[in-house]
Simulated scan of single mutants.
Amino acid sequence: MSMMDAVAPLASMALIVAALHDVAARTIPNAIPAFVVVLGLLLRAAEGDLAWGLLACLLVFAVGVLAWRYRVMGGGDVKLLAACALLPPPGSVADMLVAIALAGGALSLFYLAFRGRHPFAIPPRAATLPGRAVRAEIWRLRRGGPLPYGVAICGGVLLTLAG
């Protein structure tokens, strides 16, 4: 069993949790990118390209900080994106970023299709977390709230790791 076979399920679960948390609360807890960084560092060290992996992570983080500075991305998204740059081989980071951008485009199209419209009735207050999340998301769609870009990051990274 390769190191990637051991790391991929753990990274996938962490990314799915980040995406769900981003949808529910529009935040990504710091523990998730930290966990992904640890997995990525272990993976890059095991594959012998730690220095190149760290360089890729640093470059993605630097560009992400600029995006955060100009309010294009949230801080949690930037941290998660930089952490994820350690998961694929350094030569595949650009492919991962393209996959994330494509997933973000699909997510954007969905949100644009429903922005400001009222295709869904706001359900009554729910006692369960999923029910409250659905209610909040419908409200965000109606008012044109921000995208949960953690969903796009999760989708793009999972596509890259699967390929």
Rank of each mutant, 00 (worst) to 15 (best):
G156F: 01
W139T: 15
L10H: 11
L97D: 03
C154S: 07
G145W: 08
M1N: 07
L58K: 03
I122K: 08
R115W: 13
D49M: 10
P119W: 05
D77K: 04
G116R: 06
V134Y: 06
A127I: 09
L39C: 15
G74I: 02
L20R: 09
G53I: 01
L20P: 02
A103D: 03
A152T: 06
R26G: 06
R143Q: 13
A24M: 11
V157S: 01
L129D: 10
R135D: 09
A24G: 13
Y70A: 05
A162M: 01
V78W: 02
L39H: 12
Y149P: 09
G150P: 01
L54C: 14
V37G: 03
R135G: 07
A34S: 11
L158Q: 08
V23M: 08
R26Q: 15
D22G: 04
A152M: 06
I138L: 10
L43Q: 10
P88I: 00
L86Y: 11
M73R: 13
P124N: 06
L58D: 00
G91H: 03
V7Y: 03
M73A: 15
L39F: 12
G48T: 10
A121G: 11
A101C: 07
L97F: 05
C84D: 03
S12Q: 03
A121Y: 04
L81R: 02
V17S: 09
A34M: 12
L59M: 11
L147G: 05
D95N: 10
S12T: 04
D49I: 02
V151I: 07
A99S: 06
L15R: 02
A34Q: 06
G48V: 10
A56V: 06
H21Y: 06
D77V: 06
A99M: 00
V23L: 08
P88W: 02
M1V: 13
Y111K: 04
I153E: 02
I122C: 10
R26F: 14
G144I: 12
Y111P: 00
A85K: 00
P124C: 08
R140T: 13
G104A: 09
A101I: 04
A127C: 05
P123W: 09
L41Y: 08
V134L: 15
A45L: 14
G74S: 07
A31S: 15
R26A: 10
C154H: 00
E47A: 10
A8N: 08
R117S: 12
S2N: 14
Y111H: 07
A56G: 15
D5P: 00
M3L: 14
V93M: 03
A11P: 07
G48H: 06
A152P: 11
R69V: 11
L159A: 06
L109T: 08
M13K: 13
K79G: 09
A103T: 00
R115L: 07
P29G: 14
V134E: 07
V93I: 07
A67W: 09
R140A: 15
C57S: 14
P88Y: 01
V37M: 12
A121F: 10
P9M: 11
D77C: 01
A106M: 13
L102C: 03
L66Q: 12
A133Y: 08
L109R: 13
T27S: 13
S2P: 14
I32Y: 12
V60A: 05
L66D: 06
L107R: 01
D95S: 15
F114R: 11
L109D: 03
H118P: 05
V151D: 01
P29Q: 11
A11Q: 05
R132Q: 12
F120I: 05
L87Y: 04
A126W: 03
L50D: 06
I32S: 07
V157G: 02
